[in-house]
Write a protein that binds this DNA or RNA. Sequence first.
DNA 1: GAAAAGGATGTATGCGCATACAGTGGGGTC
DNA 2: GACCCCACTGTATGCGCATACATCCTTTTC
Lengths: 366, 366
Amino acid sequence: MSAKAPTVYDVAEHAGVSIATVSRVLRRPADVREATRERVLASVRALGYVPSASARGLAARRTGVVGLFFPDFDAMRETTSFVPDRSGTVPVVRDHASDDDGAAGSDLLYFDEVLRGAEIEAWRNGFVLLVGVGRGADSHTIVSDIAGRVDGLAVLAGSVPDEMLEHIARRIPVVLIAGPRRDDDFDHVSVDNRAGMRALVEHVFAAREADGMLYIRGSIETPDDIERYEGFQDAIAAHPIETRPGVSVVSAEFSRDRARDVATSLVSSGHIPDAIVCANDQMALGVLDALQAHGIAVPGRVLVAGFDGIDAGRHSVPRLTTVRQPMEDLGRAAVHVLSGRLGDPSQPPVTLRLPVSVLVRESTAP
Amino acid sequence: MSAKAPTVYDVAEHAGVSIATVSRVLRRPADVREATRERVLASVRALGYVPSASARGLAARRTGVVGLFFPDFDAMRETTSFVPDRSGTVPVVRDHASDDDGAAGSDLLYFDEVLRGAEIEAWRNGFVLLVGVGRGADSHTIVSDIAGRVDGLAVLAGSVPDEMLEHIARRIPVVLIAGPRRDDDFDHVSVDNRAGMRALVEHVFAAREADGMLYIRGSIETPDDIERYEGFQDAIAAHPIETRPGVSVVSAEFSRDRARDVATSLVSSGHIPDAIVCANDQMALGVLDALQAHGIAVPGRVLVAGFDGIDAGRHSVPRLTTVRQPMEDLGRAAVHVLSGRLGDPSQPPVTLRLPVSVLVRESTAP
DNA sequence: GAAAAGGATGTATGCGCATACAGTGGGGTC
DNA sequence: GACCCCACTGTATGCGCATACATCCTTTTC
């Protein structure tokens, strides 16, 4: 706010020492005699000195910041200019209950949890966290805006073009979150989608002799969907498919609406399976929507299960059995790995698989 | 990752131009002839050049980063070292429903929403967001860690000692979130607690001729509690207290447990009011706990209302009438104001009061 | 009590970039 | 054809700090 922010030079002059001593007081206090140190600190307070991270970063060749990059967490969001509303009135809104977890509620998102974990681990390792959200901005901007400011970057897999990742990785370590390892040299942290889905499907089989089971896939190209589908196949293999002629698979693009449609046409056709397992919770909720609309009992007539552990699944009726991903741990792991690599850049690429757990709730009650 | 990150000098040499031209290509492309520009960009790609934000910040005297500082959002949190669990087993957990929104669920927190709003607005204004969470670290560290890295800082009121705020404010603009204006020169953004509570209490009176009303305060010293209490008094004044001999006030420290105790002893005493309005949702939920434990109908016998609009209130039975704070807007407003001040440092201190809204749900149904 | 060994502090330099200012050259003007 | 103007590019400098190295002063050693 003042005309000009004080620098080390100002502090040095005020305290009657050299700038080297000022710098030492701040960086390695033990190297300075106590009397001198106190004098310098007094000047720091008197002048309101705050060291410039830019200058420090330049000189020290490290910023002390790690970045977390996510794709747009809500593309629908208004990105209109923020215009403060100063009217003094208080609207009274009648908030009707609604199964559809739409506009009314804002449940905890994937993003928020990962972020929280990342922040915690960054702090524990002496870093500060920089948050970047991609919004279709041309990727070039992303590089300049984030990569140049941090010592390391955690990126949600699939949110940044490979070529750009390579570019960034030439300068700083990059950790991919939630993607599978490919033929790259990045560090990876992800959850065990395959084992999780396998365990989920096995739970469903254990809950009921589900002769007819429908598995609803998400977006087929995505790593998550592929891995979960493999887990599904693992479980099916354990229960020879020949004895389960009713097993079938469709895709609903990870969309609640799409899954609702799928389930609706299923009901119309009359071929209702004994269990429906979905590659994510949103689709499972869509299935619940459709079944309840047609008066088909869950879990009475059909068992339903999802994957992710989103909040909405805790509040649906019936509550949704799912596979809970340790999202916060994902964030922590990502920064943990980053921190490790910054400490030892030569270590071989790391791949961390975090365990998931099946949350059994009423939607698959025997 | 490479031995040494390329700099402008490397790019300049590779492209056969001067560093000034390289810098221009990146900062003001229009000032460079297209042929030259393309050549430089090709070199940038070829070398994997990423500009150093530290150097840029030093030279340009601005970082392009705004900070958001919060106090520890969960002091209980494990801050143990993160140890990845590599076991391949998938635990199957039976997740029982429970009214107490305790360990099981992680609902969207105040923090997450404000953060999200801040990120959005930062992006819209060409800034990147730096997140800092205070954890009892000595405040000196905070200054160095955050203030030196950003062009402006948004701080949750009360999370940083005044003296430190003054210190920081000598270097960069500071915006206080959610606190009332005091005799300071900071910019402020907050919600209209007073008008919100007044509207809430008036709604309750409108819903029922509540002769006996209990108002449960939070932590009496906090600005939020004080403002809400004033709002309560406003509403009471409109309904002359002499005609409402049953109006009384107690405090429960914003704690669910404390409020539960208060309500329990109320029931024991037999003096059950017609309506209970709490200074936050947590306490209202505690009241619901106690009343339901004693079989007292809500809203049949007693109306209950809270303040904040937390997620748990959307899932309680009955659903809780409350005052919803626009947390995301708070974050947006904070960065909006910061951005404005960075554009015109001389403008007088800004105070933004964001409107709240009463969410009417079943806990106050007539 | 003199010299060696530390301990404390100062001096000088470079980190990588933006930018004011100084060229440099090509096209237009009369 | 000489001159001016404008568009483009290069040169030189400083941003604020960390740190290697030099210097000076205080102990310690014998």
